[in-house]
């Protein structure tokens, strides 16, 4: 086992399936025999509040349920305002996966706070970390509702990036998603893996040009 473990922050807003994402990931890493600790921080209200999941897997028992700022390997975020909240906690070689979806904060809607002046996607891209941006508008499909299934799109994306067995990950999805949603979720998963394949090919060619 070469990978001794990673610290992941999964972020977004209520209703985006963050807890399902971290649940699927936990099943996958458990099968690989890792120790896990997953801590969910959920704000007030049934919908629309910020949700963050601190996901840690390791070949040794995990101590702190919260990941210290500076120790995060991956930020996986389904909402780009939330992405910005966690950028500072990444390691130098940490990687960001972020959807461009945005749910305007209540405080901005109510004019208690000003909207951020700069384009958030650009701010994320400009960070010193390696970033992968997924625009749900760009990848809309008649086969599944991407706004509902961005979590599983991201799971496919992440699995491709990590070089994991898609068969194993898809099995985890099949085992843990209600039967009537499996078909749509598998389409979403494949989409995510396909986007990642295309993106990784360009990134690699870009870096080889430098």
């Amino acid at each position: 086992m070469q990978d001794t473990g990673k610290n992941i922050i999964i972020a977004g807003v209520g209703g985006q399936g963050i807890l399902l994402f971290s649940n699927l990931l936990s099943k996958f890493y458990m099968k690989l025999g890792y120790e896990l600790k997953i801590s969910d921080v959920i704000g007030l209200g049934q919908r629309g509040g910020g949700v963050e999941s601190h996901f840690r897997y390791s070949n040794k028992p995990v101590l702190s349920p919260f990941i210290k700022a500076g120790d995060v390997d991956f930020v996986i975020s389904f909402e780009q305002t939330e992405t910005l909240r966690y950028l500072h906690s990444l390691k130098e070689d940490g990687v960001v996966f972020s959807s461009t979806y945005e749910l305007t904060s209540t405080s901005v809607n109510a004019r208690l706070e000003k909207p951020m002046a700069e384009c958030k996607t650009e701010m994320i891209k400009r960070s010193e970390n390696k970033t992968f941006i997924i625009d749900p508008e760009e990848h809309k499909s008649p086969d599944f509702n991407i706004s509902k299934m961005m979590n599983v799109v991201m799971l496919g994306y992440y699995a491709e990036f990590r070089g994991y067995s898609h068969d194993d990950m898809i099995q985890v999805v099949k085992d843990n998603v209600p039967a009537k949603f499996i078909e749509g979720n598998l389409k979403a998963y494949e989409k995510g893996a396909a986007i990642a394949r295309a993106e990784l090919a360009t990134k690699e060619s870009v870096s080889s040009n430098c």
Binding site: G48, G49, T106, K114, P115, M116, M123
Partner: peptide
């Protein structure tokens, strides 16, 4: 804990101006 007991630990500053989320009623 680190901030107070590990003097040379690196400091991390969150991005400024990220708006907070007040609770909202469901549609």
């Amino acid at each position: 804990i680190e901030e107070k007991l590990v003097p040379d630990a690196p400091k991390r500053t969150p991005q400024e101006g990220v708006p907070f989320r007040l609770p909202v009623s469901c549609a």
